[in-house]
Simulated scan of single mutants.
Amino acid sequence: MKIVFLIDDDADDREIFADSLSSLDSSIMYQEAVNGQDAFEKLLSGTFPKPDLIFLDLNMPIMDGRTFLKKIKEHKDFSAIPVIIYSTSSSDHDKQYASQHQAAMFLTKQYSIALLTRDIKQAIENFLGV
């Protein structure tokens, strides 16, 4: 079983993402966190299964995606997990930061469910082989 972890503070974005993911492959387990701190606490708890792929929003309260990306890539138990930046931002600065901190891919959030599903499908095929 493959596990996809979405870290995003927007409840609507989480719901749409989960619906798109389940329409692609219902065997993929979906987990979520509302910010980087919440995500890191879940990962470190030991009760939260280690994900195979992380989708990460950049702009969140408490711990933003930039800080989370840096921390996870420095952590020995989680540094190999591919992290896909999943943000409304399309700025060159954010793309450069993501690349410098070993993000596997940068996706700008789509506001069309069809386009969102297409992008999630591409990422899952590339990184999970599903």
Rank of each mutant, 00 (worst) to 15 (best):
S45R: 10
I72S: 01
V83S: 02
L56W: 00
K73A: 05
L69C: 05
F55I: 01
S91L: 12
A39P: 09
D57W: 07
K50G: 01
G46N: 09
G65Q: 11
L58K: 00
S90F: 15
S89T: 04
K76A: 13
I62L: 14
K70F: 06
A39N: 14
H75V: 04
N59S: 11
D77V: 02
I84S: 03
I72W: 04
F48E: 10
D57F: 02
K42T: 07
E74H: 09
K71M: 08
F40H: 09
K50C: 10
D92K: 13
S90W: 07
N59Q: 10
A39S: 08
S79I: 02
I84R: 09
D77M: 15
K73G: 04
L44F: 06
T47L: 14
I62T: 12
E41R: 15
P61R: 05
T47N: 14
S87F: 10
L56G: 00
N59W: 01
I81A: 12
D77I: 04
M60P: 03
D57V: 01
L53Y: 06
S89K: 08
K70W: 03
N59H: 13
L56N: 01
A80P: 00
M60Q: 03
L43V: 05
S87C: 13
D64R: 00
F40A: 05
K73E: 10
D57K: 01
S89G: 05
F78Q: 12
T67D: 08
Y86L: 05
I72V: 14
K71S: 06
I85Q: 09
I54Y: 04
S91F: 07
E74Q: 11
P82Y: 13
E74Y: 03
D92F: 14
P82D: 14
I62R: 14
S79V: 07
S89V: 00
L69W: 07
K50S: 04
I54C: 06
P49C: 06
